[in-house]
Design a protein around this nucleic acid. Structure first.
Length: 363
DNA sequence: CCGCAGGTTCCGA
DNA sequence: TCGGAACCTGCG
């Protein structure tokens, strides 16, 4: 369709895009990845607020409120100090023709849209975080320092949407990355808005009110349908997405959010402890998932998500191998790393994975 | 076929 | 307040 002028759309900051995308951060399922020659490319959908849009196909004006936009990021592997990006408008939304190009917008509107895209990328990749300063902190800690050999340019990968992050994080609990990713993909393709771009088809993440209507099991779905087919034909239910017993948690979480028992915009204004206590009330959310949500969904960088691996790593590095509880690990991390806890957790985890430390401390 | 990984919940000391 | 079993699914 159309996209921006490549020469202007560029960031100059230290980041390793591929590393950041693929470091297993549980904020959202990974973006689409294509490697072209020496370039790493990532495609992903974001939503932006825009003014009303003139749909040229049916000659009507649509007020979407938010416009889905496909982002296409690329980075030359040999230069981690910059990356470029393009954006693309959809040609179909839920099978409706949707013709938009850059000429639909005034110069000023384009300026607004491109500014929003920039802000969004900056937020998602935490580009305002001062990595150099963090590296000074890191090098002062002899246990932490070796991680830099494996993590140069690694940044936090902040969720596009806090609700998606909450549901994804619930799904990630007691789960493997592979299964968790598949489940989220199925949820999106089952119920998300279908968006067709020149570069491919994407699905949005469903909204909280949609979750309330989802069937939990194939049986439930078949019952509602009068059992017209074999039971395994019923796939539009959460269990069939492979989420297991987390299905009811997801629905309850959505309900709490809709009922304002958990108010997403309030959380942004809370202090960490208050936000932590509130999020813990959501079923399926324990301390580890709560910290993931706060770190990746709400950018509370003082959170120190403590799973079994971080527990083992901290025990090994800082407690002479003596086994400490997940709770103790979390306390230690927050105490020891302060506002850098989230980054320290990220760097330690990736370092252990890449250095072979994980295999060594596996019980 | 079975064993295992993974965080939260729930149950019973 | 704590330890430990149960939970669901995919992978080896």
């Amino acid at each position: 369709m159309c996209s921006g002028d490549m020469s202007n759309l560029r960031f100059n900051s230290l980041i390793n895009l591929k590393l950041t995308q693929e470091s297993g951060q549980t904020s959202q399922a990974p973006w689409k990845y294509n490697s072209i020659e020496n370039m790493d490319k990532f495609d992903e959908l974001i939503y932006l607020k825009v003014p009303s849009i003139n749909n040229q196909v049916n000659d009507e004006t649509i007020s979407l409120g938010k416009l889905p936009i496909l982002l296409k990021l690329s980075q030359d592997k040999s230069n981690l100090n910059e990356f470029s990006y393009l954006y693309e408008f959809p040609k179909k939304v839920n099978k409706r023709e949707f013709s938009l190009d850059i000429n639909n917008f005034s110069k000023n509107e384009i300026k607004i849209i491109e500014k929003e895209i920039r802000d969004e990328i900056s937020k998602i990749y935490d580009l305002n975080f001062d990595l150099e300063k963090f590296y000074n902190f890191l090098l002062d800690d002899e246990k932490l320092a070796p991680s830099l050999d494996f993590c140069n340019g690694l940044r936090l990968f902040i969720a596009k949407d806090p609700f998606e992050c909450i549901i994804s994080s619930i799904c990630s609990a007691n789960n493997s990355i592979a299964r968790w990713t598949k489940s989220i993909d199925k949820i999106k393709s089952n119920w998300g808005e279908k968006l067709e771009f020149e570069s491919g088809i994407f699905y949005s993440f469903p909204k909280p009110n949609q979750f309330l209507d989802f069937y939990e099991t194939p049986i439930e779905e078949a019952d509602a349908d009068g059992h017209s087919y074999e039971i395994d034909c019923y796939t539009h239910n959460l269990k069939s997405c492979g989420v297991g017993y987390r299905a009811s948690y997801m629905k309850k979480a959505s309900k709490m959010i809709l009922d304002n028992e958990v108010n997403i915009s309030d959380i942004f204004n809370m202090d960490y402890d208050e936000a932590f206590d509130l999020i813990l009330k959501i079923p399926g959310v324990g301390p580890k998932v709560a910290d993931c949500i706060l770190l990746y969904g709400f950018d509370y960088e003082e959170a120190f998500p403590s799973d079994v691996w971080i527990k083992r790593i901290i025990s090994h590095l800082y407690f002479d191998g003596e086994e400490i509880s997940a709770d103790k690990t979390r306390e230690f991390g927050m105490e020891h790393f302060g506002d850098y806890a989230g980054y320290a957790q990220l760097y330690l985890f990736h370092y252990a994975r890449k250095s072979g430390l994980m295999d060594k401390i596996k019980k």
